[in-house]
Computed example of a mutant assay.
Amino acid sequence: MQIRNATAEDAAAIAAIYNDAVMNSTAIWNDVTVDAANRAHWIDDRQAQGFPVLVACDGANVLGYASFGPFRAFDGYKMTVEHSVYVDAARRGGGIGRALLQALIERAREAGFHVMVAAVEAGNTGSIRLHEALGFERTGFMPQVGQKFGRWLDLAMLQLRLDEREAP
């Protein structure tokens, strides 16, 4: 498996992984699927802002993707990023998500960010365990802040301090 920067050629595979998560899971709290053009624009937009979009590949097959971007759109949060990691449903549980998240953490450290935030549907214990294994700490729990599939969803907040700076 190789992890590399995503390109427009990866957009269709990224859209397929995203759409599966939209239709079949509570990992993405959207109800609308996207097409390859949408994901190509998303890749371009993220990379133009200086944020990574990574793909895990096995040859020409995209197995998963990951990115991070701004946590909130206020100056005081500029040293904090929020990430997302999604793996093809048939390939989950094989270490792809871990490898992508580790690569994102390294990119965030290299870019000088101070904190990485994870917002995870609270019932996704696999994702929460993965984050904790990589050093994330649970910092919050927000009951019933979302909905999907006719039920309320709770949000678990986790964060990883990327460096030991005492001041910004």
Rank of each mutant, 00 (worst) to 15 (best):
A15N: 08
A15K: 12
A16M: 05
A16Q: 11
I17G: 02
Y18N: 04
D20I: 01
A21F: 06
A21H: 14
A21S: 12
V22P: 10
M23W: 01
M23N: 14
N24Y: 09
T26M: 02
T26L: 00
T26Q: 01
A27E: 02
A27N: 06
A27C: 11
I28H: 06
I28N: 04
W29N: 08
D31P: 00
D31L: 11
D31M: 08
V32N: 10
T33V: 15
V34A: 02
V34N: 00
V34D: 00
D35M: 00
D35C: 10
D35R: 04
A37W: 06
A37Q: 15
A37V: 14
A37S: 15
R39C: 08
R39H: 00
A40L: 11
A40W: 05
H41G: 09
H41V: 09
H41F: 12
W42D: 02
W42L: 04
W42V: 05
I43N: 04
D44C: 13
D44W: 07
D44I: 11
D45A: 15
D45R: 15
R46E: 04
A48Y: 01
A48F: 03
Q49W: 10
Q49F: 06
Q49K: 15
G50Q: 10
G50T: 05
G50C: 04
G50Y: 11
G50R: 06
F51Y: 15
F51S: 02
F51C: 07
P52V: 09
P52C: 08
V53M: 14
V53K: 06
L54R: 09
L54C: 03
V55Q: 07
V55F: 06
A56Y: 13
A56E: 12
C57V: 15
D58H: 15
G59Q: 06
G59W: 06
G59C: 05
A60D: 15
N61F: 01
L63T: 03
G64S: 11
G64E: 05
Y65S: 04
A66Y: 04
A66F: 06
A66H: 07
S67M: 08
G69S: 14
G69T: 13
G69R: 09
P70Q: 10
P70N: 10
P70M: 12
R72S: 10
R72T: 11
R72D: 03
A73S: 13
A73L: 11
F74Q: 03
D75N: 12
D75C: 04
G76N: 12
Y77Q: 02
K78D: 13
K78C: 11
K78F: 04
M79D: 13
T80P: 00
T80E: 09
V81N: 03
V81F: 00
V81S: 05
E82L: 01
E82H: 09
H83K: 01
S84G: 12
S84E: 10
V85D: 03
Y86Q: 05
Y86E: 03
Y86M: 13
Y86K: 05
Y86C: 08
Y86S: 09
V87L: 08
V87Y: 12
D88P: 07
D88T: 08
A89P: 14
A89E: 13
A89T: 14
A90L: 07
